[in-house]
């Protein structure tokens, strides 16, 4: 077990190392950020001074070594545009993104599970077929367009919910959150729903497949033979068994929610790190781009690691087959 965890941590570190190299050299090919920051009236000496101040006069490999050394100390450089440390900017926007992704995740479970379980229990009914058709549509709908349509329908035509921005936030344990005020919920509802759509379809499909498979199992037949109520069979016996794969998949999907929030945050002007990334790309703010990618890569690697380790605890076959291979 310990060997398995150590090997996985080693692999994770390797992934992070490779990503540092790829991202740094990749992003530094983007054009010359000096031209973004100097006015056309500046003379040559001022241009040189700006370059030196930003460290752009040095050869790229020297910049890289400097970058890695600083990154190990948690310093990813200063934003060209904001003048603040890039990592600080990212982290200050992180709670908003996490809040959005978490609400979307719970929406996916709360909406997707009942629909999927129903479609699995009564696959021949019209409603079940309708649910499945909607889930195909959910996979096909381009997220950003659905976001626009949600704004159009709920904010402009009906005027129920605000179209953009984040509502009142409350500070809890040093983190700003909008989940503790009703006003905050009205703001988060649309973007979270938009972000959750794809995952709702995913949960519907997973739950339906799980229920259909579980319904044929001996333990379900036995429970039925014992005379348990349908409600208890579904709610306790089946649900417990199908939750494991669903929770695993959703754990892995959490990272993709964070990545996709770039789109949702841009549409709904949600002040998270995705919106920050897009602004940074448009302004060629390299330190912010690099810092964002590194934060997300670390987040991903940690999620994958945790899921892997948890899984191998729950299911020893995983680590045994790997040890053999």
């Amino acid at each position: 077990m310990l060997a398995f965890i150590i090997r996985r941590i080693g692999q994770a570190m390797l992934v992070i190392g490779v990503m540092v190299v790829i991202v740094f050299f990749g992003v530094n090919v983007i054009g010359d950020p000096v031209w973004m920051l100097i006015s056309p009236e500046m003379d040559q000496s001022a241009v040189e001074a700006t370059k030196i101040a930003l460290g752009l006069d040095k050869p790229i490999w020297e910049q890289f070594i400097y970058f890695v050394g600083n990154a190990l100390q948690g310093d990813m450089g200063r934003s060209f545009v904001h003048g603040e440390p890039a990592i600080k900017l990212i982290l200050s926007r992180m709670p908003a993104t996490m809040e959005l992704a978490l609400v979307a995740l719970f929406m996916a479970i709360l909406i997707g599970m009942p629909l999927g379980v129903y479609a699995g229990l009564k696959p021949e009914t019209r409603l079940a077929k309708g649910i499945m058709a909607v889930s195909i549509l959910g996979f096909s709908l381009p997220t950003f367009w659905v976001g626009l349509m949600l704004i159009m329908f709920f904010s402009i035509m009906l005027g129920w919910l605000p179209a953009t921005g984040r509502g009142d936030t409350v500070r809890v344990l040093g983190i700003e959150t909008s989940l503790l005020s009703l006003n905050g919920w009205t703001y988060i509802a649309l973007p979270a729903l938009n972000l959750a759509l794809l995952k709702i379809s995913l949960v519907i499909r997973l739950a339906r497949a799980g229920v259909r498979e579980a319904a044929l199992m001996d333990y379900v037949k036995f429970a039925r033979a014992k005379g348990l109520s349908q409600r208890r069979i579904v709610g306790v016996h089946i649900l417990k068994n199908i939750m494991i794969p669903i929770v695993t998949v959703l754990g892995l999907e959490f990272g993709s929610l964070v990545a996709f929030s770039v789109v949702t945050e841009t549409i709904f002007a949600w002040p998270g790190m995705g919106k920050l990334l897009l602004e940074a790309i448009q302004r060629l703010d390299r330190p912010v781009i690099v810092a964002y990618v590194m934060v997300v890569v670390v987040l991903f690697v940690v999620i994958n690691l945790v899921v892997d380790v948890l899984y191998s605890v729950l299911d020893p076959r995983v680590r045994l087959t790997e040890a053999k291979a």
Binding site: V23, S256, A259, V301
Partner: peptide, 20 residues
Amino acid sequence: DLQLSLPAVLIALILVAALG
């Protein structure tokens, strides 16, 4: 594996940001 562990939208975004 490395590539599939990261979401497509993020990789594509960074790439087009770098390429134009």
